[in-house]
Amino acid sequence: MLSRVAENIYWVGRYLERAENTARLLAANATLHLDLPRGITPAWEPLIAMAGTQDLFEAQHSDYSEPEVIRFMLGSEQNPSSILSSLRAARENARTIRDYMPREAWELINKHHLDAGERVEEGLSKRGRHEYLKRIILTTQTLNGMLAGTMNHDQGYHFLLLGRNIERADMTTRIIDVRTDGLLPLENSGLQAFETLQWVSLLRSLSAYQMYRRSMQARVRRGDVLLFLFQSADFPRSIRHNLCNIERSLKTLPNHESAIRILYQVKSRILSTPVEKMQCTPLHHFIDQVQIALDRVHDEISNAWFLPPH
């Protein structure tokens, strides 16, 4: 397949996954908000920090109020990682390769983007938000299923999976990062009782709550939650699971040696690091390293298979 097409389909995978994960994160934050005692609100600033868009946000807003943060992450045209921008980018990439994917899939991506734009006011209202975000998640899942069920599982499909799984691993680390740090003003506040809520919220952000319960058969505790999200072999959004999927896709492609080498390094770090015992600062540091390693896997993929830059 063409190198340019491989690159575009990889980005379709990444952008769709980014839109879906952002929707999950916003939905979970809204739920947490409802669970907390009156007067205590979850901080919205970390959500902006997670995507690395503080500078952009602060250039346009004076404070981190809920409506402003939601608008910025959901519908802002200026924010390149908002749900709407991600869907637009997915659609534009799909448009450059619409000859390559099944027609129904292109039509759904196109409709997904149109719908999200037309209903954006619904998503911004408190009443309509849940439905809006649910639709974003469901449509993306439908699309994933449609592609799995109707597209040849050839090299192109593996580039789609690579994009999706790298983005998912990256988003999982970002969500863990933002949810383990500074979400609630816990110190000396008498709110320790609500700590469990914070971990439940982290699991919910990744749609992991139910699977955690089944898999860990334990109450929700920090160490177990971290262990589950980094090292579970079974949960499809854990870092380990994503790395294994990336490995499988890489092995179907020619000239995969250097990409695989980097991947093995990060995989063995994940499996050998006792995340359950790490305090906030070392954990944050470790997550940074994992993100850098994922960037290197991306660079190797780009070097091996994408078009050389002009």
Partner: peptide, 13 residues
């Protein structure tokens, strides 16, 4: 892109 898709051949730049 439509014609490339219908003929099953690559669309190139």
């Amino acid at each position: 892109s439509y014609l490339a898709q219908q003929m099953g051949c690559e669309l190139v730049e």
